[in-house]
């Protein structure tokens, strides 16, 4: 029941964020969207992902978007879309959602113990990670040890993004 309520609010926030002409309101709605998403992750027992969503999605993204907004105008300019284009957009959206829905048909049901995600390397992580890595949190053991190269790469990507922004925007400050 609460899942349906959360998903309903997610959709409402997403649609409202698109429809708003006031961009500051849009950004705040996106922050609310991220917080609801964090609750959804918690409902799915993915607390690490929920934490990331709350701190990155709702926290720093909102701050940086508002900072970016301070360099432009707050109100979106009104633009008229010709009806013929609306028809094309509608068709593309319907086709894409049909393909995505078709793709979900093959997914295992939620909590299925025989799902590929639970039968490949997950048992090894759950049973052996404390002996092999020495860290109680399995998520951290996977991120920092089994997939240590990935995390090093991600950190380098963040560093690279920072360098790119410095190269593009560096002024006096």
């Amino acid at each position: 029941m609460i899942d349906f309520a959360l998903l309903f609010f997610l959709v409402v926030c997403a649609v409202a964020a698109i429809q708003m002409r006031d961009l500051l309101s849009s950004i705040m709605l996106l922050g609310i969207y991220s917080f609801i998403m964090a609750v959804v992750w918690t409902r799915l027992n993915a607390v690490d992902v929920a934490f990331t969503e709350a701190s990155v999605g709702a926290g720093i993204t909102t701050i940086l978007l508002i900072a970016a907004l301070s360099r432009t105008r707050r109100m979106e300019t009104k633009q008229c879309v010709p009806p013929a284009n609306l028809l094309i957009y509608g068709t593309v959206i319907l086709l894409t959602s049909a393909v995505l829905l078709y793709g979900t048909l093959d997914m295992p049901t939620y909590g299925d113990p025989g799902a590929p995600a639970h039968s490949h390397v997950a048992p090894r992580y759950l049973e052996k990670s404390y002996e092999e890595v020495g860290v109680p949190n399995v998520v951290t053991a996977v991120l920092a040890s089994y997939r240590g190269y990935d995390t090093l790469g991600e950190t380098t990507v963040i560093f690279g993004a920072g360098i790119c922004v410095i190269l593009l925007l560096r002024r006096k400050i």
């Binding site: 940086l64 900072a67 092999e132 860290v135 951290t140 950190t155």
Partner: peptide, 27 residues
Amino acid sequence: GHLAIFVIELGVGITVAGVMITLYFLI
């Protein structure tokens, strides 16, 4: 493993904090 993971987490944290601060100053 425990100590090494603490050190690399600290490294990730330092980079992320530094980049976020830089981004805010620039944007």
